[in-house]
Each structure stands twice: as C-alpha cells, then as structure tokens.
Design a protein around this nucleic acid. Structure first.
Length: 588
DNA sequence: GGTTTCAGGA
C-alpha cells in the first residue's frame, strides 16, 4: 500500500502505489561504488538526491571497513529526537560531505578516536575541521549520546576548550543546547561546574555571559536573571545585547516588575539603554496591549538623547494598524517624515495591508503609487499585498493589471503571487484564466525551480486537478528538486478532502521518506480523513508517530480523533487519549 | 556588539 524501496543488485528501485502492480519501478538509481577517490561533485549530487542509504551501504562495503563510523549518520538508522534537537536532512548531508573531507585530509584518526568514546578534545578538533559553525554544531548534536552527568560534564569541558580556542559562537551553541536538553532542574550542575573550572579558560564576564545567553535561548528566564545578579555581585556589567533579549522574554511572560527593576539597574549601573533596548521594550508593551506605555517610552527615549529610528516608528504604526486605527498609523507616518526619519517599505506595506484588510483598496492604491516619490520601489511583497486586496474585493481585473505592471517593472512574482491569482480566478473569475496563468508561469522560467514546484502543485490542487498535481510532484522528486512542506500539505489536504485517504497516506509516506517533517496541518487533514472513514487505529498510530518524533500536533488533530472515537462509541479509547501521553490535552 | 520592526498565499 505504501511506496516500496528495494535494492536489486546494484540499483535502488522505488515503486509508488499507483504502479505497484506493474513490474516497472517508478524510479531507479544506480548505486555508485563509493570509494574515497570519488569526486566530491558526484558525491554531492548523489547525496542531494536523497539516496543516503546507497551511499552508506557502498561506503561501508568498500575496501576500508574502518569507516563504519559514518553509518551512524544514516537517517535510516537514527530516529530524530524532539524537533528542537533533531538535525535536518540538509545538515546531515553537509555533515557527511564534511566528514569525507576530513577523511581525505588524513584526519580519520580523529573520527575513529571519537567514535569509541565521547571525548571533548576530539570533538573540538573535529568541529574546527568543518570550518563552519552551523555544521560543526549539527555534528555535535548528532554525536551527543545520553544526558548523564558524566556526558554533561564532558560537554562543559568542550565548551571551555572551544572558548579557549576563540570559537565563542560554537561554545555558545553547545552550552545553550546542553542547558535546554537537561532542563531547568539540572541546570544548577552546569552553572556550578562551569563557574568552578572557568579560570583556566575564560574570564568571569565571559563565562557568566555565556551562561546567561544559554538560559535566554532555553527561555529559563529566572536563571538568566540570576546570572545578571551574579554579574553585578562580581562587579561586571551584563552585555547590552543580552539584556535586550532578557527584556524581550520578561515582557513576553508579563513579568513587568522585573522589567522595570532591570531598567532601573541599567540606568544606575549601566550599560546605558540603547535604541535597541527601547525598541524592544516598546514592542513588548505594545504587543501586550499597553499602547500608552509604548508611546511614553517612545518620548522617554529623547531624554536619553536617543532619536527614535524607523523601527520605533514601525512598531507603533503597526500597533495602531492592527487595532483598526489606520488613520492614527497614517498620522504617525507624517510625523516621522516631518522629523526627518525615512519610512521604509515595511512602513508603507504595514499601512497598505491595513487598508486592504479594511476593504479600502482605493486609498491603498494611492499610497502604493506615492511611495516612489520617497525614493522607494514596491517589492514582491508589496505587489502581493495589494493584489490580494483586489482579489478579496473581488476585482480580478485590477489584480490582473497589477500583475502585468509587476512584470513590466521587472519585479519577480513568487509562489504567493501565483496562489493569490489562481485562487482568485477559481473563486471569482474564470477557470480558463487560472489555467492560462498556470501555463504562463510554468513556461516562463521566471521562477526558481523550488518555488515553481510549490506553485504548480498548490495551484493544481486548488483547481481540483489532483492527478496532475501528483504527476508534477513525482517529477520534481525524480529530478531531485526540493519541495516545500506546503506543496506536500496541499496535496495531502486535497486528497484527504476528496475522501481519498489512501492516496493521502501514500503522499505522507513519500514525504517522510524524503526527510521532510510534516506540519500540524498535514497531520490534521490526514487524521481528519482517516477518522471520518472510521480508520481509528491507523489515525491513532499516526498521531503516536507524530508525538514520538516531536512533530507538532495541534488541537484540531486531537479533537478530530476524539470525535471519531466518540462517534464509533468507543468512549474508553476516547477518554484514554485525552492527556494520555501526559503532554497534550484537549479542552472542550 | 551576538540585540530591535514588518508585510503576502495553502
């Protein structure tokens, strides 16, 4: 029922369900005999097609058996942990490419040493050899085993070694990750260990700053505040940027007492609040609905001899616009121009978007036409915004003209442009125009391949032409062109809605095979279809898989499954699945 | 100086 992958002699073959009855596989890929002399280009192309398994199997069966270590990086032998810590297929690919380079540099002994035990010294050496912070970090995440006290300590040592080598960012990555992984309760261990050992490697400020940033990324706000206190204790000043992040978090959780205390301490003991600090605070208060406080802070800035910048104005203008006070937003726009602060495309688009939402397309168009006087040119987003405004106002003619204008001005349309227009044509216009547009765009070569896949697939689904959509999807897969989760979502949702849950399930499987994480909307639509057909066991299994892999599962998905249980009369199973996993809960 | 905004489609 699902896509099957089989290895036949030296070829990897893939059968898709629609063709399983035939003897001809849909895809086949000849396995390269992968030796170390393999050119990295061949390797890259092979890996980018997603045929990791063939790479690994040939790699380990090649003459040199000592590279079994790489096996461990196969996506098939390793189930991803929680979504926060898992690495994606692209990172995996880059790790492997990096490792092969290391082997070529005759540094394989490092890998061998490291594969036997988790050794901070080897880890740091290998991380350095990647010459890339991102990939080095991905490598660390992947090689990290258990979170026993011993391992955590070894990680702390690695953090200190990295810091001593001047790789502050990598050190920070590791520390933040370890703290997030072991959680709030055990973080004390790390603080204590790092503080006790730090003199050999780094300064008081540096170690406390790293810890503070680690707690900030892990959103352990109280511990971050403790680090600030500790810094004051030993006579150091927290860094301005770290304090800004702390403000952001404190405001988000609504701990205004701590916000003002922190602010007072800054004024008294430094560091002096900057424009960044103020903008963050204004945004924080405004998001919580305290518009007046935000505005007051805006005025206070000048007492600190700081001039509000385009960010400050944009934050306030947006605050007014999303509350339906577009005219106030406009007034602020005039104020900023009067004070010599140049509005940006963001400023204008915020207001144009607000006007479109109100249905005031005429005013939006006026503003849109006027921005050129300010030396600004509309970008893709701005065209899309206005175009969507026209479509929502059911004025397909204007939307089309805007599209022409966009192309004449050399602004590249993207997948969203296409979605807006096709959706518009099918809802309010003529179907033939939608078809024409689809052809037009797919022929033009105007768009990069990846977004082309997106729009074609999504567009065809919208038009209800599922088989054609699936054809394009398969074509893209075959050519190794990356496809976004959105395109998969469209197909899965379309099949599910059409009651073809088997086909939806197939596509879901294919999606997993290619290393994409389904989003909550993917699983909701699929779960919905399965539940409606009464296939509750499969639905429940699907959900378990999602939870286990750390993919987001939303409330809708739970509700749908519960509904299925209750309709089938299985109240017991239904009540068990409410909060049964201890994490998710559905509230009616 | 690693910190701040914001807008568009399923």
């Amino acid at each position: 029922m699902y896509a099957t992958v089989r290895r036949v002699r030296n070829t990897l073959k893939v059968w898709f369900p629609s063709s399983s009855h035939s003897h001809t596989p849909r895809y086949s890929q000849t396995l390269v005999s992968c030796t170390l002399s393999l050119s990295s280009q061949t390797l890259e192309s092979h890996l980018s097609n997603g045929y990791y398994r063939s790479f690994y199997s040939s790699f380990s069966s090649s003459a040199d058996r000592s590279f079994d270590f790489l096996e461990q990086f196969s996506p098939f032998s390793n189930s991803p942990g929680s979504s926060k810590t898992a690495i994606n297929s692209n990172e995996r690919r880059r790790i492997v490419v990096g490792l092969v380079k290391i082997v070529k540099q005759q540094k394989a002994y490092l890998l061998k040493g490291f594969s036997r035990e988790f050794c901070p010294f080897f880890l740091v050496k290998i991380m350095k050899l990647f010459h890339n912070r991102e990939i080095a970090f991905a490598f660390f995440k992947f090689s990290f085993g258990d979170d026993s006290e011993g391992t955590v300590r070894l990680c702390c040592v690695a953090v200190q070694l990295l810091a001593a080598e001047g790789l502050r960012h990598s050190a920070q990555d590791l520390l933040s990750w370890v703290v997030a992984r072991i959680g709030f309760c055990r973080s004390g261990e790390v603080v204590e260990f790092m503080w006790r050992e730090h003199h050999k490697y780094e300064s008081d400020f540096s170690v406390l700053d790293s810890l503070m940033r680690a707690f900030l990324t892990a959103e352990m706000v109280s511990l971050a505040v403790e680090m600030v206190d500790k810094m004051r204790e030993v006579g150091k000043r927290p860094s301005s940027s770290a304090v800004t992040i702390l403000f952001k978090l404190l405001l988000r959780i609504g701990d205004y007492g701590s916000v003002w205390k922190l602010f007072r301490d800054m004024v008294r003991k430094g560091p002096r609040p900057s424009t960044y600090t103020f903008n963050t605070m204004i945004l924080g208060f405004v998001r919580k609905g305290y518009l007046q406080i935000g505005e007051n802070l805006f005025y206070v800035m000048r007492k600190f001899r700081l001039e509000p910048d385009v960010y400050s104005y944009n934050i306030l203008i947006n605050a007014y616009c999303i509350r339906g006070r577009t005219s106030d937003g406009l007034a602020w726009l005039h104020l900023m121009i009067g004070r010599g602060c140049n509005p940006s495309t963001v400023t204008f688009n915020t207001i144009i978007n607000a006007m479109c939402k109100e249905g005031n397309v005429v005013e939006a168009r006026k503003l849109f036409s006027g921005i050129q006087e300010m030396g600004l040119f509309p970008n893709t987003i701005m065209y899309n915004t206005l175009m969507d405004g026209y479509v929502k106002a059911r004025d397909i003619g204007q939307a089309n003209m805007l599209y022409e204008e966009m192309r004449n001005n050399g602004v590249a349309p993207d997948g969203i442009t296409f979605n807006i227009l096709v959706a518009g044509h099918y809802k309010y216009g003529r179907e033939v125009d939608g078809d024409r547009l689809l052809r037009d765009l797919s022929m033009s070569g105007l768009l990069p391949d990846c977004s082309l896949a997106d729009i074609s697939v999504a567009g065809l689904c919208l038009a209800g032409r599922l088989d054609e959509a699936m054809e394009i999807l398969e074509d893209m897969l075959e050519k190794g062109i990356p496809i976004s989760v959105i395109a998969f979502n469209s197909v899965i949702a379309a099949y599910s809605n059409a009651g073809l849950e088997d086909r939806a399930f197939e596509v879901y499987k294919v999606m997993l095979t290619f290393g994409l994480s389904p989003s909550s909307s993917t699983c909701s639509s699929l779960l919905m279809a399965l539940s409606v057909k009464g296939r509750l066991r499969e639905a429940r299994e699907l959900m378990n898989v999602m939870i286990e892999k750390g993919f987001p599962v939303n409330k809708v998905a739970f509700t749908v499954l519960l509904d299925g249980y209750f309709r089938s009369g299985d109240i017991v199973a239904g009540s068990k699945s409410v909060g049964g996993d201890g994490k998710k809960r559905v509230v009616f």
